[in-house]
């Protein structure tokens, strides 16, 4: 399945990119697996503070569907 991943703020800086599309052989991928995969791939420093949004919904967990958009978000600092 195909998953679009978006990176923001300090995470984008550490990953060296703001977006990528992952083609995965398995159809049995969940948010937790993807987190571990990306966090270790880019050796992200402060993984505890990272929040995940799936298709722009915060706090998502569990299995992912083909075509999902997953965003890794550092602490918000607008305003």
């Amino acid at each position: 399945m195909k998953i679009t991943i978006k990176y923001f703020g300090v995470i984008a800086e550490e990953a060296g990119k703001t977006e990528e599309v992952l083609e995965l052989d398995s159809d049995d991928i969940d948010v937790e697996f993807l987190k571990d995969h990306c966090f270790s791939k880019y050796s992200l420093s402060d993984t505890k503070s990272i929040q995940v949004a799936v298709n722009q919904n915060m706090g998502a967990s569990g299995p992912l569907q083909d075509g999902d958009e997953v965003a890794f978000l550092p602490p918000f600092s607008g305003g």
Partner: peptide, 24 residues
């Protein structure tokens, strides 16, 4: 609520061109 719930990210840039990520 906007400061707490909205995914906006601020990069603080210093006079010597270094930076740090802002925390609300």
């Amino acid at each position: 609520e906007i400061k707490e719930r909205v995914p906006i990210f601020g990069k603080e840039i210093f006079e010597d061109e270094t930076h740090q990520w802002k925390v609300n």
